[in-house]
């Protein structure tokens, strides 16, 4: 009943043609692009990896074996658990948390500065200079980072020239390049939600707190951050999700010993030729990330609705 009323209202407000287009486009987008593919992936993840001839045959039944593999490894192995994959899984999530925190620490001051201090032309120029570098595509940027951080790269040469180090530091092996690349990759997705939130803060509140004798740290801790919490949550969620799911940066900038869980997924799909197992790994990552985000939102008392603001 209320849905019908909403529909009538929606059509009256937008006109039949526009209304139908918006409804159709959104439905198509959600169903065709989001729900269906994920359902196929979910379905895939519960099946055996069969040769094409046997698909749909008597052997094509549902199974948990792909998920079991992630946890216990192959039945033939000596270890109780699949430590190799599990540790990559955990490391990826921890590293993503780490990158998110770095980005938050970097972006909060920038966002606050943009929203409350930079005025007019300066502000616009700063925002432009944040956006324009993102015209450079991801692969190019990742390789450029490789060159900068390489053994004979600009940074090492400079440090050696200053005499701070004798031998070039292997930034790639130490994962410095990886973390820098990942932190830089999604910085805008952290800045803009925080910027949006902070911008709507009444400047008088900051001045009032200052007038009460508050120092800057407390002003941020008690006034600005609580106010910007939805924006911070929104930025952190996006950066965390995208970092955990990143592929190009770990592939290009990762050291020889570091492996990102997405790389394992790709291996199963591509070289392994085992799509069901790849799907199971991908779904496991998705669920873990969503669960982690929901948990953190509960800890910080943020409702999902607030993030949309």
């Amino acid at each position: 009943m209320s849905l019908k009323r909403w529909m009538t209202g929606f059509m009256e407000k937008n006109g039949l043609l526009v209304g139908l287009y918006i409804l159709g486009a959104v439905t198509l987008w959600i169903v065709l692009m989001i729900v269906l593919p994920q359902l196929f992936m979910l379905d895939f993840s519960f099946r055996y990896n069969l040769p094409p001839a046997e698909i749909g045959g008597p052997k094509d039944v549902y199974t948990l074996s792909n998920y079991k593999y992630l946890i216990y490894g192959s039945a033939g192995s000596a270890a109780d658990y699949n430590w190799i994959d599990l540790s990559v899984f955990l490391q990826t999530i921890i590293a993503a948390v780490f990158v998110t925190l770095i980005d938050l620490a970097l972006c909060y001051p920038i966002a606050y500065y943009l929203a409350h201090t930079a005025k007019g032309a300066t502000g616009r120029l700063l925002i432009l200079s944040l956006i324009i570098p993102y015209w450079v595509n991801e692969i190019l940027r990742a390789f450029a980072f490789r060159i900068i951080f390489g053994a004979s790269g600009v940074i090492n040469n400079f440090l050696v020239y200053l005499g701070l180090i004798d031998q070039p530091i292997d930034f790639i092996r130490e994962d410095v390049a990886l973390y820098t690349g990942l932190s830089y990759a999604y910085i805008l997705l952290m800045i803009f939600p925080i910027y949006n939130a902070v911008e709507s803060l009444d400047r008088n509140q900051v001045e009032a707190a200052r007038d009460m004798g508050s120092g800057w740290l407390r002003i941020h801790w008690r006034i600005v951050i609580p106010f910007a919490k939805p924006g911070i949550a929104s930025g952190c969620t996006m950066v965390f999700m995208l970092t955990a799911g990143a592929l190009a940066a770990p592939q290009i900038l990762g050291g020889p010993s570091s492996l990102w869980f997405t790389q394992l997924i790709v291996q199963w799909f591509n070289t392994g030729g085992n799509w069901p197992r790849g799907s199971a790994y991908a779904i496991a990552l998705l669920i873990a990330c969503v669960a982690f985000v929901l948990f953190m939102m509960r800890v910080f008392k943020i409702r999902v609705g607030e993030i949309g603001r």
Binding site: N204, Q205, E207, A208, D211, I223, P226, F227
Partner: peptide, 13 residues
């Protein structure tokens, strides 16, 4: 000194 702002600027949270 303490200032009372035109819009009061109480802390809403």
């Amino acid at each position: 000194t303490a200032l009372i702002f035109q819009n009061l600027a109480l802390f809403p949270l």
